[in-house]
Amino acid sequence: MIYVDDVKKTYVVPVRESGIKGALSSFIKRDKKEIAAVKTISFEISKGEIVGFIGSNGAGKSTTLKMLSGILHPSDGAISVMGHTPYKRAPEYLKKIALIRGSKPLFAPADLTALDALQMQRIIYDLDYKSFTKDLNRIVDWLGIEPYYKKPLRTLSLGERMRCGLACSIVYNPEVLFLDEPTIGLDINAQSRIRHFLNEYNRETNATIILTSHYMEDVTQLCERIMVIDQGKLLFDGNIDYLIESLTPYKLIVFTPDHGSTHIPWDRYGVVEHEMNGRITIRVANHQVPAITGRLLSDCSILGLTVENPPFESTIEQLYKAEVV
């Protein structure tokens, strides 16, 4: 479905020193610098997969998405998506993909309504009028944009604009969705709705979804497979549970003891991570979790107890420290 083979991308960017002196010297002589945004990455993605692409700012995530969608030419290597070479931007290819950005979900002028933007898509993507009208009603219901899809886009909240942006993208039934930080700036409810929708779209259409995000919730809730990119190199490509198991081989036991048990030294059960408002979090090796939980429940009077995975952020932090898995 998607094949990326030894792909590199370098940019030539103008550089200058700060201040008026730098501006003057760049007016006379312009210095340029070559920056390797992506340094040789290779991977394959099968149809119907949802893959999370994570990494810090400037790691090369967006550049990779731009090469996959066809905006940028790779400097080296080969990319094939559904048998097409993306940078050739054949209309048949562009009709099968969508690139949606959380920071700018809609391209239409702000004075237009989402319905106007959808009508624009009908002409641009050569959609049959009858099937467009039928699909439109379904999409409006599906994304829940009925209350505001006839209002000017400028009056919509970011979450509403994002849902309208998704409507404009799925109206032509793309087989591959490239999502660049789809939940950026959204509140928790709006994030959750977008994630729910993406899951449903994938289930109903078997579309392939590749998303970048700084919100680990997006990745942990949507993707079984993740790719971690750092400084233009792929650090990890595989199952998310495997990554957590191998890099953070421990669980967090979170419990609330009753008032009679507060004197107990909890470090005898594991490494104490937090102690706040009577809630205690201890870190315990995976294989010790059943035994420690049993001991805690028998030794002390516990009001409530849960076993949790460590935060995904700490796994990624570990990965950056370890460099290679």
Partner: peptide, 11 residues
């Protein structure tokens, strides 16, 4: 120019 480039029409 990203949005324009990704439309299935002459850029």
């Amino acid at each position: 120019l990203d949005e324009t480039i990704l439309m299935p029409e002459n850029t």
